[in-house]
């Protein structure tokens, strides 16, 4: 059984979300070193929902499940237009820093870290599920 909590859809929620992740890892006996990448994945997906989910007005639900082998992160955004993050165009990391244009980098980071990234849209609710194998 995992943990679920809803957070106001603004960037100031990030601190409380990070505390939520740390508490979950501690309760499951998972190495706290994994908090860095879990925080990063959640921040990128959460801020993406805050910025781009059309019609979004409700709190965003974050779910955590897992053990010492694998962590599953779920973000659920209620009553929004569809925004399939798995279809975001890949970033060309060979483009020199001085020529980079903003955008897309957050999802690129999620793809680099995650072992799987899935999107589901049903009844105007967006659900993103990420799994990450934990290797100490």
């Amino acid at each position: 059984m995992g943990e679920r909590q809803r957070f106001p859809r603004n960037f100031n929620s990030l601190k409380v979300i990070s505390e939520f992740v740390a508490a979950f890892l501690a309760a499951r006996g998972i190495d706290p070193a994994h908090a860095f990448e879990a925080d990063l994945v959640i921040e990128e997906l959460f801020t993406n929902m805050v910025k781009y989910a059309g019609g979004g007005a409700h709190d965003i639900e974050i779910g955590l499940e897992g053990d010492r082998d694998v962590l599953t992160i779920t973000l659920r955004d209620f009553d929004v237009d569809a925004f399939d993050v798995t279809r975001v165009r890949p970033v060309d990391t060979c483009t020199p820093a001085g020529e980079r244009q903003p955008g897309g980098l957050g999802i690129h980071l999620v793809r680099q870290i995650a072992d799987s990234l899935e999107y589901e849209y049903k009844d105007r609710n967006s659900t993103i599920t990420v799994t990450k194998k934990l290797r100490s």
Partner: peptide
């Protein structure tokens, strides 16, 4: 994170 973003090269 810089490496994932490909920014470590530039």
């Amino acid at each position: 994170v810089f490496t994932y973003a490909g920014l470590d090269k530039f």
